[in-house]
Design a protein around this nucleic acid. Structure first.
Length: 808
RNA sequence: GCCGGAGUGGCGGAAUGGUAGACGCGCACGACUCAAAAUCGUGUAUCGAAAGGUGUGGAGGUUCGAGUCCUCUCUCCGGCACCA
């Protein structure tokens, strides 16, 4: 029998905390604030995953410590509940997604409560609740008003067999996930959000955050800011021209040809003009290029292809020489200007292409201090200009600006980011709050009309023409109303007939601002009371998965910056600090998956060992930010710790003589929690317990401090023991223990003797022993006599309190 | 190809340039037990009988002293990928 009954204890305290509102946040408190955030879960049918537990426990430990340190903490939870699985389930079974979602949420809520997270359950938000998505729609309309949302024809993934639009995640290896038919690209008018307008700020403002460095780097790579030049090239004997983007204007004299993306508008124009002699060949190439899906086009190691535009040439603005123009799909229409100046001598891609098509290769940069230019080598770095007329001898870096100016180019910044496709042809999402009149002209729905709620439908399948299932619901799509003077739509039975937008928003919408709603979750007149938003934002610390670094994190930073620009938030960055937990892999280090059957269900662990054990185990399993493998056998080690802790109460005495070990433990555990070094925090706690067990008795105050240190990790057992020791209020509302500096220092220290750096003995001496005395003590050690003997040391290294190294 | 991260016992992993392997798992032996489990105790990098060597992916280097710093290199994991 275990001495400690975790089931009884955990059930009791879970209920008790709920009744007492132990973790409720007072947003009006005058205490300093701490807003700890974790990524709210998608309530999938699979239930809570041990990965959730890892992330949430990490933040819970930090929040609990902050709470004990006197902060008013906001640690909320909610549900990111729109999304494909519920919709696909509805297609299969006809059960409304709201029903499945509600059931799943209930399961998740129970599981999370059983884990003992100190969430304020009164602040739950649910992205599918009309009272929530009312404000998602409101933000959308604000974006619309500010010209940041627009409609554009965009290629979408289309399954020709299922006849429906596929989300990117439904396209696996270029095929429809469900039926396996090859996905095609089709053009469709799509709602877009102009995130690219914020690209530079999204990059630059990372400087003001304390995100983990790897998160910043990954975001920066994704945003892909680069500084370069836009330079115009004239087409010989015409008035036409095109603009190229280059980061290497210093190599302009080495530009021996140009390339336009196959989709480039100028190509269409030239074809229409009849100026291109090999029209058929060019048209064929364009048709093929467009049909290829993204993946083919950018496949690794793929040989470059292209077609020369016969009959026209461009003029290199630097030296006025004629250069050929190609179209080639290695130039992307979506980046830069969709056209490049090719410098085969100094760009690997251009070099490969030029070799294949026999274009001139002209070196214009030489490596600094490298005299021999006889044997040409592809050389891409900065250097000194050659063959560049009056610019010869200049350094690459300076020449970039000077050459750009000389040819009337512009210095510009570009980003790899593309605007955000903000529409799905799906049912289970926030309706986009716009209407169209009979002419197809678009009007925003008035703010006062929000939310535009999802109607009940019969069928969830996307329609044959790729429209959302909402388009079936004619009595919803068709709506009567009037326009106000500002052009906003108001429903009105006596008004004219309008047609609602049937696209819905992507799942990223609700999660782009959810953390703000927690502050004032039931506010019906605004997305949050301004004073409270100003007080509680930005989020102090946000922990989540690395997989959200490039999408969710970027999207929510974008929305937040916009909301800052319209005066709703106090800062332009939503999260002061962002950290990431590593994945939990299955036994043996492979990814947990249903198909392998190695998924660990947290419920099973909670039942068998208790939530305290689960939480501590996940914190102990390895460094928080690294991937770790679950090990069934190791869980028992934590459970033993829990049992031994429970038994330790029998050793408590009234002694006033605080033990040194507790002070060391307080210091180390406190530091480790702050840096998320949870694994070493727990090993420190284990060491402390081992030390306590060696003692005849443990002073009550030491034991109490020990419980407080464990409380963030194991909230149940510590609460139970606290009560058994006579605690009246919750341990989780107690203050964090402090250590006594003087108790950290041991009176005796062990000096190590090294001879030539090798360990040859050790001696324990009083801390205040002088250098001379230490040296003489060391010289009487066997190791000294044996390895040094009568030899005269060349050098004696003395490190106070640590070691003596004798060099002979 | 580019950008990150990581290579340490049988395993997960510890180590401000100063005793490598803390802590935990596992294993071995012992105690308790009729017995087993649980629990408790002791031990546990490796070669060697011992003395003594050798050891943090590999090769060099700096240093009195390197898992830690520097140079080169190999392997694994994650992200991006024709971004001009």
């Amino acid at each position: 029998m275990n001495p400690y009954d975790h089931i009884k204890t955990e059930n009791y305290w879970q209920k008790k905390w709920e009744e007492d509102f132990t973790y409720r946040t007072d947003t009006h408190s005058s205490k300093p604030t701490f807003f700890g955030l974790i990524e709210f879960p998608y309530p999938s049918g699979a239930g809570l995953h041990v990965g959730h537990v890892r992330s949430y426990t990490g933040m819970d430990v930090i929040v609990r410590k902050r709470r004990m340190e006197g902060f008013e903490t906001l640690f909320p939870i909610g549900w990111d509940a729109f999304g494909l699985p519920a919709e696909n389930y509805a297609i299969k079974t006809g059960i409304h997604p709201s029903i499945t979602t509600r059931e799943n949420i209930n399961t998740f809520r129970e599981q999370l409560k059983a884990c003992g997270f100190s969430f304020d359950w009164d602040r739950e938000v649910d992205t599918t609740d009309p009272q929530y998505y009312k404000w998602t729609q409101w933000i959308f309309l604000k974006l619309y008003e500010n010209g940041l949302s627009y409609k554009k024809e965009m290629p979408v993934n289309w399954c020709p067999k299922d006849k429906c639009v596929l989300a990117n995640e439904e396209v696996v290896d270029g095929k429809c996930e469900r039926c396996g038919a090859p996905a095609e690209k089709r053009n469709k008018e799509q709602w877009m959000l102009a995130i690219t307008k914020y690209a530079e700020r999204l990059d630059k403002d990372l400087d003001d955050t304390t995100f983990l460095e790897r998160i910043k780097i990954q975001q920066r790579n994704w945003i892909g800011m680069s500084s370069g030049s836009e330079i115009d090239f004239k087409i010989n004997n015409t008035d036409l021209s095109f603009t190229v983007y280059t980061t290497r204007a210093d190599t302009l004299f080495g530009c021996t040809y140009c390339v336009l993306a196959p989709e480039h508008n100028l190509v269409k124009q030239l074809l229409a003009n009849g100026q291109i002699k090999n029209k058929e060949e060019v048209e064929k190439y364009i048709a093929e290029a467009i049909q290829k899906i993204d993946m083919d086009r950018s496949a690794e190691g793929k040989e470059k292809t292209g077609v020369l535009l016969e009959g026209i040439t461009a003029i290199n603005p630097a030296n006025k020489k004629e250069v050929p123009i190609f179209i080639a799909d290695y130039v992307l229409a979506t980046y830069g200007t969709g056209a490049i100046m090719a410098v085969p001598a100094h760009d690997a891609r251009d070099y490969e292409f030029a070799k294949k098509y026999g274009v001139e290769i002209k070196q214009v940069i030489k490596e600094i201090d490298k005299v021999d230019t006889e044997n040409f080598e592809l050389y891409c770095d900065d250097g000194i200009l050659i063959n560049s007329e009056s610019f010869d001898g200049q350094k690459s870096e300076e020449a970039r600006t000077k050459i750009t100016e000389a040819v009337n180019g512009k210095l510009v910044k570009k980003s790899k980011l593309r605007d955000w496709v903000f529409a799905r042809q799906r049912y289970w999402g926030e309706p986009i709050p716009l209407v169209y009149d009979k002419e197809g002209k678009m009007y925003p729905v008035a703010m006062s009309e929000l939310p535009v709620t999802l109607p009940q439908v019969e069928k969830y399948e996307p329609t044959d023409n790729g429209e959302s299932p909402l388009s079936h619901v004619t009595d919803w799509v068709s709506v009567k109303g009037k326009l106000d003077v500002a052009g906003y739509f108001h429903t009105d039975e006596t008004g004219e007939e309008f047609r609602r937008e049937t696209d819905t928003m992507p799942q990223w919408a609700g999660s782009s601002w959810y953390f703000m709603r927690y502050i004032d979750p039931r506010n019906d007149t605004s997305l949050g009371e301004k004073e409270m938003l100003m007080k509680w934002l930005p989020v102090t610390w946000y922990n989540g998965g690395m997989e959200h670094t490039t999408l969710h994190l970027l999207y929510s930073r974008f929305w937040y910056k916009f909301l800052f620009d319209i005066g709703l938030t106090p800062t332009s960055e939503p999260y002061m600090k962002r950290t990431s937990q590593g994945m939990i892999l299955g036994n043996g280090g492979v990814k947990m998956s249903k198909s392998i059957g190695n998924v660990i269900n947290p419920d099973v662990i909670v039942k068998k060992f208790g939530a305290d054990t689960l939480r501590m185990y996940e914190m102990f399993i390895g460094p928080f930010d690294q991937a770790v493998a679950w090990d069934d056998k190791s869980v028992i080690g934590i459970r033993r710790f829990v049992d031994r802790l429970y038994t330790l109460k029998n050793k408590v005495s009234e002694s006033e003589n605080s033990l040194s070990i507790i002070h060391k433990t307080i210091k180390k555990v406190g530091e480790d929690i702050d840096t998320m070094a949870f694994n070493t925090a727990i090993s420190t706690l284990m060491i402390c317990l081992n030390e306590f067990e060696k003692e005849k008795s443990v002073p009550l105050n030491d034991f109490k401090a020990f419980l407080k240190l464990i409380a963030p990790f194991a909230p149940f057992i510590t609460e139970e023991l606290w009560k058994e020791l006579g605690g009246i209020s919750s341990i989780h509302k107690e203050s964090w223990p402090e250590f006594n500096e003087s108790k950290l220092i041991d009176n005796n220290v062990t000096y190590v003797l090294q001879v030539n750096g090798k360990l040859r003995g050790e001696v324990t001496l009083s801390r205040d022993t002088s250098k001379e005395d230490v040296l003489s003590a060391v010289k009487s050690l066997d190791g000294y006599l044996k390895y040094v003997g009568e030899l005269v040391p060349k050098q004696q290294i003395f490190i106070p309190g640590k070691l003596v190294n004798i060099v002979i």
